[in-house]
Write a protein that binds this DNA or RNA. Structure first.
Lengths: 330, 330
DNA sequence: GTGAAAGCGCTAACAT
DNA sequence: ATGTTAGCGCTTTCAC
């Protein structure tokens, strides 16, 4: 591997000039430019980014911390973030934290030692203090899918409560009488807000009873069990709003096994809008613009890295009702 | 941020000793160890990995190049590779190449400049020469899901042809008479081999005709269109073997729309074994041990990085027939 | 416009 | 067992 010094020798100019040329910093004459370019090509010279990072400051690397890339929500986030990252010249490190604060802390330490330029993090366990600590090391952070009120942290969340209301209202409008809710893990803010949205709409209905709300763990099997439990207690339900699409899938599976026809007897709606074109019937959902959340996270992060002004607050993203066969009125 | 020199000063020993202590290389006395540890904690010293990489050789970073993390096959690979990577002290960079040789080349250049320690790559377009070039830069490579015969390259593929045979044979054994195949993109070795496996078993059947083999692009919608085309030509087929699970899902969707009952009228089997617990009926498949492919890729890579002996060849992984409701005999 | 030289923070001979 | 020192390849004053 040739170094900047080799180029310097061959081109007959100092390394400083080469560096200026490479970084478009400072003046370089036309002639110098040409000899340098020739030398670079002749030697097939590639600047060493490690050295560059040590001397300068940036590593052109950012990290994405997610609970688990196997959860279909996160590949889309990862894809979006990586697309933008690569367009902006960053490289993206992927970390799975498994909802485990220790793993999380561990990764954060490693990433600090690697002097990465910024972190996008999706976590329900991280504390604001940890984020301040990162920013103290000059590593900006963007949080997705979680937020704290009145806290100077850049975060992106979707309008979960409104979305929950939309889902419940849609089932109501479709003529459903007894609408159940399969709620995600209580400690997840997003899950709680979706549930609150459901309550906003359903609590005042005469058919409402708290046992229409059951717990699921955001997984297919969680939705499946929840639906079985629900159906045992309330064989007369007409609508189900699941806290995410995976649980909705599980619920549909359980309903199929009970030979309940969807949407004739029971209408189902999920939440998230992950790509589920494989379903039959296709699932209605409250779609979050997942890709654009990932995109924006990376763009905000870039702004912070470049020290461009950016208001430190929660950025709320609109959601959208997608009506498919699983909840269609006949 | 404190440096090794700060620690050296505070502990009253030389930087070399600190370095030896940090890397467990060379002798360090018990007393020295203690003062050093104390100083490190007092200063909250964290070694700078950038400097470490520049001086030493390793960056403790590896990259995973995949066509698209949105394809459900790859998150599982990524998860497995990252699990092993983090256990071994590496950090994993994720790159999406979109089956695009230019993007691929581009990423490879960037990664070389970052002096990463190794690459795991899933690509149908990469050429052996590119891999040799990487190894010439001292960057070992493990290829997954693709291989070249008699070439000194470490690759991991599953037994696609055998798997194709197993799928077709299973449908045959289940009493299917006219079995169709939805084949993946022809230039993908894995797709071609699965098709060959199908042919091995079906070509000699009296009902066989080439028009039972149609093309799909490995996506749900590809499988859907292929199934519609197939059904128009052969409304009497009794079995479908799709080249991957996504196309199988699309095929099932099309069959549902034709009100064809699965598995009573038509049995369906896919290929891959991605996590599709959301399906109803659950899909039969030829399961590749996807996670363990990712794991092994990372383990082989680590061996190469550490310059441990490893035979440069294709490692073939067994597949497994998983019978679920979509192809169950009644 | 260009060059000399001092780092960036660490590792690894080599000397002691 | 420990210290000295020369790099690793680049950026960046500062002087010319």
């Amino acid at each position: 591997m040739s170094t900047i010094r080799d180029v310097s020798k061959l081109a007959g100019v100092s390394v400083a000039t080469i560096s200026r040329y490479l970084n478009q910093s400072g003046y370089v004459s036309k002639e110098a430019e040409e000899t340098i370019l020739a030398a670079i090509q002749k030697l097939n010279y590639k600047p060493n980014n490690i050295a560059r990072s040590l001397a300068g400051k940036r590593t052109a690397t950012i990290a994405l911390l997610v609970p688990d890339i196997l959860n279909p929500f996160f590949p889309e986030i990862a894809r979006a973030a990586e697309d933008v990252a690569s367009r902006l010249g960053y490289t993206l490190i992927l970390c799975n934290t498994d909802y485990n604060p220790d793993k999380e802390r561990n990764y954060i330490d490693v990433l600090i030692n690697k002097r990465i330029d910024g972190i996008i993090i999706s976590s329900y366990t991280i504390r604001p203090e940890q984020i301040y600590a990162l920013e103290a090391e000059n590593i900006p952070v963007v949080v997705i899918d979680n937020a704290w009120e009145d806290t100077p942290i850049v975060s992106i969340t979707s309008a979960n409560r409104t979305g929950g209301q939309m889902a419940a209202q849609h089932l109501l409008d479709s003529g459903c009488q007894k609408i159940a809710h399969i709620c995600g893990p209580y400690h997840i803010t997003a899950a709680k807000n979706r549930m609150l949205g459901y309550e906003d709409v359903c609590k005042q209905q005469e058919w409402f009873t708290p046992s229409l709300m059951v717990y699921g763990d955001f997984s297919v099997s969680g939705g499946y069990s929840a639906m079985r439990e629900l159906y045992a207690k309330h064989p007369d339900i007409e609508g189900v709003f699941a806290g995410n699409d995976l649980m909705a899938a599980g619920a549909m599976k359980a309903l199929h096994e009970f030979s309940v026809r969807i949407p004739d007897q029971v209408k189902v709606i999920g939440y998230d809008g992950i790509h589920m074109d494989m379903f039959y019937p296709e699932l209605s959902t409250i779609a979050q613009p997942i890709y654009s959340i990932g995109e924006r996270a990376m763009m905000y992060l870039d702004q912070m890295i470049k020290e461009h002004p950016l208001e430190k607050k929660n950025y709320l993203i609109d959601v959208q009702l997608i009506v498919n066969a699983s909840s269609r009125s006949l």
